[in-house]
């Protein structure tokens, strides 16, 4: 199939960017979206032009590196799918595809489709951990975690930290990302002790880093390639209320 791409090109963090148009020809439907972009880049390089810079690494949907808004949807909008797992069979010959970077004040564009997501790191550093030392911990079975609790924690822990929730949120809020960690650690006995401090420090960091506030649009849940549910934001809200009393 042949496709027309409109890709956001931006030379550097301070440069002004714009959408540029490229043709992707002879695209096989078994290719992944990134492989299609690889091909476009090969052509650009051969023509002596700067290839499109985009983030990617594992290409199996787990590292969270890839980050593109495709036709207005983070990761292309296919359910539980990252860009790297998006395959060309979900497009049709002649399609026009708009490819843009994550956009948020907290995610400044560094080049083309690459955004700086270090603000997510700061949120994690604010409390996304249990303060245990290496060694000197009890046996793994010393604290029992019944399966439903372990499953709940795992559902939250599946977050890959890609930032799609922010990119999809009308407020550019990172509340889903924050809540996933808060909820995971709040239900586990290992994390309960610090739950009150954690929910405050992490949500404060979220605001300090320039993310917006959550106003319950739930776009994040749809954007999330791991299907993290907004029930974790409800859990965060609950934890917050608990932290006040």
């Amino acid at each position: 199939m042949n496709l027309t791409l409109h890709v956001w090109r931006q030379k550097g963090p301070k440069a002004k960017g714009k959408l540029e148009t490229y043709q992707a020809t002879n695209v096989s439907e078994d290719e992944s979206f990134l492989e299609m972009l690889d091909e476009v880049n090969e052509e650009l390089i051969k023509a002596g032009k700067d290839p499109i810079a985009f983030d990617h690494d594992c290409r199996e949907g787990i590292c969270g590196m890839c980050s593109q808004v495709i036709n207005g949807k983070p990761h292309g909008g296919q359910e539980r799918t990252t860009v790297c797992q998006l395959h060309m069979r979900s497009f049709a010959d002649g399609d026009e595809i708009f490819i843009e970077p994550w956009r948020a004040k907290a995610f400044p564009v560094q080049k083309d489709l690459i955004a700086d997501r270090s603000t997510l790191e700061t949120i994690m550093q604010a409390g996304g951990f249990t303060s245990c030392h290496t060694g000197g911990v009890p046996d793994g079975n010393a604290l029992l975690v019944p399966k439903p609790v372990a499953d709940y924690a795992m559902d939250a822990a599946e977050c890959i930290g890609c930032g799609a929730c922010v990119a999809g949120c009308p407020n550019s809020s990172a509340m889903l990302y924050t809540s996933a960690k808060v909820a995971q650690l709040a239900v586990l006995p290992q994390g309960k002790g610090e739950a009150k401090a954690r929910v405050k420090s992490m949500t404060d960091a979220l605001l300090d880093e320039g993310f917006g506030n959550c106003t319950n649009h739930y776009e994040c849940q749809d954007a999330c390639p791991k299907g993290i549910n907004v029930k974790f934001i409800a859990k965060l809200n609950r934890e917050y209320i608990k932290s006040l009393v």
């Binding site: 249990t130 290496t134 009890p138 079975n141 029992l144 975690v145 019944p146 995971q184 586990l188 290992q190």
Partner: peptide, 22 residues
């Protein structure tokens, strides 16, 4: 064996049975 204990303490949600054992 220490690794498992360490990871559990960090809040790694290992698979568990209904009673809560690993």
């Amino acid at each position: 064996n220490n690794i498992i204990d360490q990871c559990v303490a960090q809040g790694v949600p290992f698979a568990r049975d209904y009673a809560g054992y690993l």
